[in-house]
Nucleic acid binder design. Structure first.
Length: 423
RNA sequence: GGAGAUGUGGCAGAGUGGUCGAAUGCGGCGGUCUUGAAAACCGUUGAUCUUCACGGAUCCGGGGGUUCGAAUCCCUCCAUCUCCGCCA
């Protein structure tokens, strides 16, 4: 969420910039400012009442010690009245804070100045394109047909054992997945990231910290009995490591990488978009997270973008990078690049990564701070990106590399798969 | 799952109802001394809200309660440790 002081000082600018996200902030900003002014006044009043009761309590202590009982009783009565007043003020203050927070979490992050205006993905800005789109023969097959032809992914079996969207990977299909995971992790470690294996279940504080709660609750699987959620991405546990933490500026940059299963309910999806590996309830992903100082976070975003591009080049997949327009940008992000690979048999671009700078939006929520040069606490910037999401990479590899002999494995991966063709 | 114990500042560790945001030690930072360093000595050293400032308020695992007054008493939740049970 946005910082209160920032909202006070930059009202007009925030309204202008949020218009790019097609969000009309004018009313809510007024409400927030009004609530905050009221909050401060109530706080001051409460502090005064408490200061008075503290003073009286001390006096009573002294009176008892010196044996002046009646005088003490007298003051006790006065103290009782003050206490009732303080209780009311406390109630008012806590209601005020709840209301203020409800409003604050409704306010999206401000888009970076380079974010183009727009309504949908068709307004995204193409920033980079790489590789040749392979020309496949007319009888080229989509990946779900290849998967069953070579017996490497079994969707029906997943439906039987669990439900739609939970496939089994089998034989060389399973080995290909494992190879990709190791390849992605090794590439990140090479670039200085620390590898983590996070818990796959998280509590509600963590879900709130990275912004899944309060309003995206329906997208996560929820274990009611224990009040836990299945992670939709490793971003949640990996970023929440730093919830309520005060870092030193020399700790920057923090670079973490984690492989995890990801679980998404994705209610309401249907049709060709969800065919095969295009959209699953459970999938694998390697996620990179960086925590950086505000001055350097955009430099870091570019570095992460190049790092992800490098993976796709090594996998010999044609891809493009788009800068998300305001309408497509997520609630929490200030700037996001999406990576899309071309899946040649489906003849469509598939999103395989999303790399974002959240600036201080997440860190304000989870109170992730650092001490600056002057010893003052500031919110750190958080960034993350998929590097990469597995299923659509597998889909593109299968479709783009199909030959009459079988499916060719790219050079960079052969050391991991220990085979060079799926036949 | 059962029984018991514990949870205090960066760390260690005192404090069991009243001037305690908290002794002391270590660590950190600054200084004296020194050519420099070490040692020694002196000083300093948590967070949040509020105020132009002085100051004030809140925080001793989380939440709630008792009391004029709570780190200290009560309830509850969480975490850690020990023993038993179960188990990959």
């Amino acid at each position: 969420m946005l910082e209160l002081n920032f909202i006070h000082d930059n009202k007009a600018e925030i309204i202008d910039r949020l218009a790019i996200k097609n969000f009309d902030a004018s009313n809510i900003i007024e409400e927030i400012i009004e609530l905050d002014i009221k909050r401060k006044a109530t706080q001051t009043e409460l502090d005064k009442a408490l200061a008075e009761t503290n003073k009286l309590a001390k006096e009573i202590g002294i009176l008892y010690k010196t044996g002046q009982r009646e005088k003490a009783e007298e003051i006790k009565n006065r103290s009782g009245e003050l206490k009732l007043a303080a209780k009311d003020l406390e109630q008012a203050l806590s209601n005020n804070i709840i209301l203020l927070n409800e409003k604050l979490v409704e306010l999206p992050n401000i888009p970076h100045e380079t974010v183009p205006a727009g309504k949908s993905d068709s307004d995204n800005e193409l920033v980079y394109e790489e590789g040749n789109i392979p020309s496949l023969p007319n009888n080229a097959k989509p990946h779900w047909e290849l998967a069953s032809e070579y017996d490497i992914i079994d969707f029906d079996l997943g439906s039987k054992v669990t439900g739609a969207g939970f496939p089994f990977y089998k034989g060389k299909g399973a080995r290909l997945q494992r190879a990709l995971i190791n390849f992605f992790l090794d590439e990140a470690i090479e670039k200085g990231y620390i590898e983590y294996q996070p818990p796959l279940l998280i509590n509600s504080d963590s879900a709130y910290g990275t912004g899944q709660l309060p309003d995206k609750e329906g997208q996560m699987y929820h274990i009611n009995e224990d009040g836990l959620y299945l992670i939709p991405t490793a971003e949640v546990p990996i970023t929440n490591i730093y919830r309520n933490v005060i870092l030193k500026s020399e700790d920057f940059p923090i670079k973490n990488v984690a492989y995890s299963n990801c679980f998404r309910r994705e209610a309401g999806s249907y049709g060709k978009d969800v065919r095969g590996l295009n959209r699953l309830h459970q999938f694998d992903k390697v996620e990179i997270v960086q925590i950086q100082s505000p001055e350097k976070s955009y430099e870091t975003l570019e570095e992460m973008k190049d790092q992800i591009a490098d993976l796709l080049i090594k996998l010999e997949l044609p891809f493009r990078i788009v800068r998300l327009c305001g309408g497509d940008l997520s609630f929490t992000s200030a700037l996001t690049y999406d990576f899309e690979v071309y899946s040649a048999a489906q003849k469509r671009w598939l999103e395989v990564s999303s790399v974002s700078n959240f600036e201080s939006f997440q860190s304000n929520r989870m109170k992730l701070r650092f001490k600056d040069k002057d010893g003052k606490s500031q919110f750190a910037h958080t960034l993350n990106g998929s590097a990469l999401a597995l299923p659509r990479i597998v889909a593109a590899l299968l479709e783009n590399n199909q030959t009459n002999e079988g499916i060719r494995i790219p050079q960079a991966l052969q050391g991991y798969t220990k085979f060079d063709i799926i036949s």
